[in-house]
Design a protein around this nucleic acid. Structure first.
Ligand code: SF4
Ligand code: SF4
Lengths: 140, 140
DNA sequence: GGAGACCGGACAGAAAGGGTCTGGTTGGGA
DNA sequence: TCCCAACCAGACCCTTTCTGTCCGGTCTCC
């Protein structure tokens, strides 16, 4: 192992891709999402909270409550979803906070990590929930 | 956090970049590397073992022993170093072994991870130890 | 035949991951 | 009105992984 995202982020992306397949504003309950996507419900609850706090989803309480995307699916990227749950992506500690490593100024490796990080961000930042929609229909 | 390499891999890359700055075949002791690169020696010992087993370095026992690159620096990539220590890189579990996830066949997200993984491998696989050499000299 | 170095693996404390549970709050509907 | 369905917030727990340390063994140069 080593460089791998958490289960929480995996679940988050799947949950979001589920919400994305409905018309904007459609509300799905925690239970519904968990069942459809095979995610432990009590864990999913926590994940969805993070997404709400991050402003990626909105929630509706009370009867017939649930969750919906806060924005059109085309305006939410995988990067945003992952970072909402796992915290900022940083392939190595010096990427996000160079001041944490005394060597960063003179380190010949530092720049290599920056490049890797940048590539990863590019691809994750360019994949939107829309492009993850399972049904290729609904383009009309 | 979440998506981040281990300290072990960080140390490994730094140690290798240290070895790479010497002419081919030059032997450096564990102690020397640890001191120069600020890596706990007993931990570094374990890391170097992994690198030897992976065939990236060779070791010399007895007095005046130590470690050296097994190949020219230009033929060792960051990807190889990282995987020797952390195990195979896999941004998500389904990337390496799709059979572990029952959903992988019909999963609309699966392909996105494959793309991210591929990008990451491209950049890590294209950075060689030679390009990490700290001294820009020694070009002849 | 030392002394200096690597080898191999057991061990351990700390941190993170992965998930559960409980009590509280909100709001819709009978 | 009042109850129930749902989300909200956080404490809690178990397991695994990370990040090392330590020690006895082996090899090899001098
Ligand atoms: S790569 Fe260099 S700068 Fe980054 S953490 Fe390692 S030593 Fe520090
Ligand atoms: S992305 Fe899809 S295939 Fe990959 S692990 Fe998640 S559910 Fe399985």
């Amino acid at each position: 192992m080593g460089l791998q995202l958490t289960r929480g982020a995996e679940y988050a992306v799947r949950a979001m891709s589920y919400l994305a397949r409905y018309p904007e504003g459609h509300v799905s309950s925690l239970h519904e999402i968990g069942e459809a996507q095979d995610i432990p419900e009590s864990f999913l609850a926590k994940i969805l909270q993070s997404l709400v706090r991050a402003g990626l989803t909105v929630s509706q309480r009370g009867a017939h409550g649930g969750f919906a995307l806060a924005r059109p699916a085309a305006e939410i990227t995988m990067q945003q979803v992952i970072e909402a749950v796992d915290g900022p992506i940083s392939v190595n500690q010096c990427v996000l906070s160079p001041e944490d490593c005394a060597r960063s100024a003179s380190c010949s490796v530092h720049e290599a990590w920056l490049r890797a990080q940048s590539q990863l961000m590019d691809v994750l930042g360019s994949i939107t929930l829309e492009s993850l929609a399972p049904e290729p229909a609904a383009v009309g």
